[in-house]
């Protein structure tokens, strides 16, 4: 597990931020910029996963928990039993792109087709308008927040088929999709490159398709988008408020865009930059 420690100077009242590895690079970037403008502040950012971050919030070993999924009901109950009231802030959106091998002629799929493919009900590309080739399905490991989100959004909470190939990292999915002709997989928008081909996705049964891009995700036409959250104890608002509002400021949201995520308020920070590939 990548645990990155980021300590500038040890003054009193350090803000501890912990949680999702998806949000880790973004939060580090934000912390660096925040410290540049607030030299007397102190921010420590560590990863470990969404679940780790939220249990740290529960044990009061972190001030802000980063989460790549919404807090679970069970976790909310635990917070309530400790008399903690957690505030929820959406800092950015992350779009997932469904990718296939560049040699694959299929360039659009509906949610229903994706569900059938990832659940093993459709096993040949010719059933979705492609060549007569076996579909090889790549997924992330079960511990990944991306895995959970894709299951919720695309598979309608049903389970992946048991023969799905689980890869330990996004990089491995790209490598495998690149070298396997019948492959299909999903990766974060920021990871898209020329070695894999994104497909347009339709959530309304094929009426309208959208290619994954920051713009399409921001205006809502691309459907596979998840919010990324910060959770913090409401009573500590005074301590963490400055950092959170910095993250939501124009400057903070500009670095959200630079890191390949979708800003919360696109109208303010969009500079007409086209991230589609």
């Amino acid at each position: 597990m990548a645990i990155a420690l980021f300590v500038i100077c040890a003054t009193a009242g350090a803000q501890r931020i912990k949680g999702s590895d998806t949000l880790l690079p973004l939060t580090q970037e934000l912390a660096e910029e925040y410290l540049a403008s607030h030299p007397d502040g102190d921010v420590v950012v560590t990863g470990g996963g969404t679940g780790v971050g939220i249990s740290a919030l529960l044990e009061n070993t972190t001030d802000i928990a980063m989460a790549s999924r919404r807090i679970k009901f069970g976790e909310k109950m635990k917070l309530a039993s400790e008399n903690l009231n957690a505030a929820e802030v959406i800092v950015a959106y992350d779009a997932l792109a469904v990718v296939v091998n560049p040699s694959n002629p299929v360039d659009s799929l509906t949610r229903e087709q994706l569900e059938a493919i990832f659940r093993g009900k459709i096993t040949n590309w010719k059933d979705v308008g492609g060549e007569d080739r076996k579909i090889v399905v790549y997924s992330r490991e079960t511990s990944s927040g991306t895995y959970e989100f894709f299951k919720e959004s695309v598979l309608d909470n049903k389970n992946y088929m048991s023969g799905v190939l689980s890869m330990p990292a996004t990089g491995a999915i790209i490598q495998s999709v690149r070298q396997t002709k019948g492959a299909i997989g999903y990766i974060g928008l920021a990871y898209l490159n020329r070695y894999v081909k994104p497909v347009a996705v339709s959530y309304d049964g094929g009426l309208s398709y959208a290619m994954p891009s920051v713009d399409a995700a921001a205006d809502g036409s691309y459907p596979v988008v998840r919010p990324l959250y910060y959770y913090y104890n409401v009573e500590k608002e005074g301590e963490v408020g400055a950092f959170v509002s910095f993250a939501l400021s124009d400057q903070g949201q500009a670095s959200v865009l630079r890191q390949g995520f979708v800003p919360v308020n696109m109208e303010d920070s969009s500079s007409g930059e086209d991230m589609s590939l």
């Binding site: 470990g48 996963g49 969404t50 780790v52 249990s55 490991e141 511990s143 990944s144 023969g163 330990p168």
Partner: peptide, 19 residues
Amino acid sequence: EPLRTIPATIAAELGEAPA
């Protein structure tokens, strides 16, 4: 065929399995 081994499972999943 693709397969999954015990050590790989432990390594990949222990990170986020709630204690």
